[in-house]
Computed example of a mutant assay.
Amino acid sequence: MSVVLRVPATTSTAELVLRPWRDDDVDALLEIYRDPELRARTRHPLHTAADARRWVARHRQGWAAGRRFCFAVCETDPVDGGQRLVACVLLKDVTPGRPDAEVGYWTAAAARGRGVASRAVDAVSRWAFTRFAAIGLTRLELLHEVDNPASCRVAEKSGYPFVEVLPARPPYPGDGHRHVRRRD
């Protein structure tokens, strides 16, 4: 399944294109992972081109299996139409007959604070509820660590109200927040 989602530009933000990861994303992915904040919040940081190639291949396999859908989020340059990688949104644990799945994301340092993550998470959430309605998907969860208030704002802006605090458990060292969005 090859899916491309488009989030229209606004007066202050560029169009977003969400698509499956490709081999030619490896260099941009490595550049983004140089950010210490992203590495600190990621369970499996990428250090080498081989790491990045394996990461892309794993997400390609997730699409093929139909259970894990990872989108590269790109901004479209309004002048030349080129695309720049700015984020990642992941829908995981999609299982027929199971009413819930999880959404995760990260944002490149240069794209933070501009609404990229909330617009992309909202687009993937709407897509998921439409695409997987027939198999019973009615609820999406977004989890983040308590010490990440930016993720709280992204969750709420993208339609995921706060539900509860989750106690720390491996592999996460700190308490977390659970946000939930239900299919309309």
Rank of each mutant, 00 (worst) to 15 (best):
T107E: 13
G136E: 14
R114Y: 05
A110E: 15
R139Q: 14
A108I: 04
L142D: 00
R139W: 07
A150V: 09
S151P: 10
V121T: 04
W106R: 04
V121N: 02
R126H: 08
R112F: 01
S151A: 07
V124L: 00
R139G: 11
P149N: 12
D122R: 12
T138K: 09
A133S: 10
N148E: 01
D147K: 01
A123Q: 05
F129Q: 07
N148I: 04
L142Q: 01
A117M: 05
F129W: 07
E102M: 06
V121G: 04
R131I: 06
V121Q: 00
L140T: 15
T107P: 13
S151W: 07
W106C: 08
H144I: 00
H144W: 03
A101P: 11
A120T: 03
R114C: 08
G136I: 13
A110S: 14
A109D: 15
V146Y: 01
V116M: 12
A117D: 10
T107M: 10
V146S: 09
L137A: 05
W127I: 02
R112C: 04
R114P: 06
R119N: 07
V116N: 14
A134R: 13
R126N: 09
A101Y: 14
A110C: 03
E102Y: 04
R131C: 12
R112Y: 01
F132I: 11
A133V: 10
A134K: 12
P149H: 11
V103E: 09
A120L: 01
W106A: 11
F132P: 12
L142F: 05
V116W: 07
R139P: 11
W106N: 09
V116Y: 12
V146K: 10
I135M: 15
R119W: 10
H144N: 03
R131N: 04
L142I: 04
V116K: 11
G136C: 14
S151F: 06
G113Q: 09
E102S: 08
P149D: 11
R131Y: 06
V124F: 01
R119L: 06
T138S: 15
R139A: 13
L143E: 02
R114L: 12
R126K: 03
V124R: 00
A108P: 09
E102T: 13
E141Y: 00
Y105K: 10
I135K: 14
G104N: 13
A109C: 12
G136M: 13
R112A: 02
F129P: 04
R119I: 07
A110G: 06
W127D: 02
E145G: 13
R112T: 04
E141A: 08
D122G: 06
G104F: 15
R139S: 14
A128V: 02
R119A: 15
R131L: 01
A110D: 13
